[in-house]
Write a protein that binds this DNA or RNA. Structure first.
Lengths: 197, 197
DNA sequence: CTAGTTCTGTCAGCGACTGACAGCCAAGGC
DNA sequence: GCCTTGGCTGTCAGTCGCTGACAGAACTAG
């Protein structure tokens, strides 16, 4: 079974190979473009067979958007940590703060990914699908904060969360287009204020 | 050149074949599922070659979401027709009314499409990408209605439009899940009210 | 050392999608 | 009447993403 640490040695090498594939692929994508880069080319650059790439990533798209996999759970955890009587919009905004920090922390990687997502239509769909899954993780908490009859509660919560994530996306896009110069938190506040206008 | 009517005879037959492909494909998708239906099967059912399907639709996804192609322009036109001093949220809500009517008019087709989109992940990404293109058509108008410094105007408009379209999507989903029983307009109002909380 | 698990490369195949080529058929000039 | 032109079509061949199956290598446990 597992050693004294939480994860076994096998899981460790797996993660190493996984990040190696992701980093090599990102370099190629930025250099040549996403659609112009073949999975076999990525595999050759890493030194493995093309088949093995799909043993670490379910799809080619996931090599890019897989980086954003844990964010939904992070946001949900941050949201659950907010006081129970905090109103929905405030709780959502505050729950995003740690995520904003982690985005600005390695801004180079974030901006590169955002740029790649911006001018690759095929990836945009995948990103939006990922965002929809984040929403699913946040809806139950927001639903609990709403004081509405049960018939309306779910629709209201889904719309609220969707609007909040749209604001987050637009703020990050704007921030990336400014090369990280504009303050991300203020952009998010501007977006939210406009929606609540 | 063209005859007395606006469109030539060639364009007419083209549209006929196009709708024929779309209708046949939708029947097969509903019966067998989207991913389980091959493009060649659709072609065979119509009586053309598989290659020709791609001469009418750029991708297999577009056979489904192509039906929603004109909606973005319709919404933009309806929005442009609203009084110039109408506030953004009110103008967006009112601009959606004709679209709501056309959705409820042939509710059977709308519900079937919504159901198909709901349980086909591959199509969801395409739908969200389409919705993003609708947003592009609405942003300039909303941007004009906002009284904000230019630095914030674009981000605010994009977020506002994105939030409104999220409300529309969620309302239609809820409406379709209720088999068209709940009043669609009220659902949309509920969603918008929740976002403006 | 052995037995069992896990990983890997290779091969074969499906389906979406594209480019190229040749044949068909309607529209228009002679 | 004929012939040319242009668009539509089917066929063929090929690329790429992705999957299942198999056999061998490597590592782990006893």
């Amino acid at each position: 079974m597992a050693a004294s640490s939480g994860v076994g040695l096998r899981e460790l090498t797996r993660r190493a190979v996984r990040t190696q594939i992701a980093e090599t692929a990102m370099e190629l994508f930025v250099a040549k473009g996403y659609e112009e880069t073949t999975v076999d080319e990525i595999a050759a650059a890493v030194g493995i067979s093309g088949r093995s790439v799909f043993r670490y990533f379910p799809t080619k798209e996931d090599i890019v958007v897989g980086l954003l996999d844990g964010i939904g759970d992070e946001l949900a955890a941050a949201l659950a940590a907010r006081p129970r009587d905090e109103p929905p919009w405030v709780a959502l905004r505050n729950a995003m703060t740690p995520h904003l920090d982690s985005l600005t922390r390695d801004s180079d990687r974030t901006i590169a990914t955002a740029m790649l997502l911006a001018d690759t239509p095929a990836l945009r769909g995948a990103l939006l699908a990922k965002r929809a899954r984040w929403a699913e993780a946040l809806v139950p908490d927001i639903s609990r904060r709403l004081k509405l009859p049960p018939a309306r509660r779910d629709l209201a919560a889904r719309s609220l969360v969707g609007a909040a994530l749209t604001c987050l996306n637009n703020a990050v896009d704007d921030w990336a287009r400014s090369n990280g110069r504009k303050p991300l938190a203020k952009l998010l506040d501007t977006a939210i204020a406009a929606v609540r206008g």
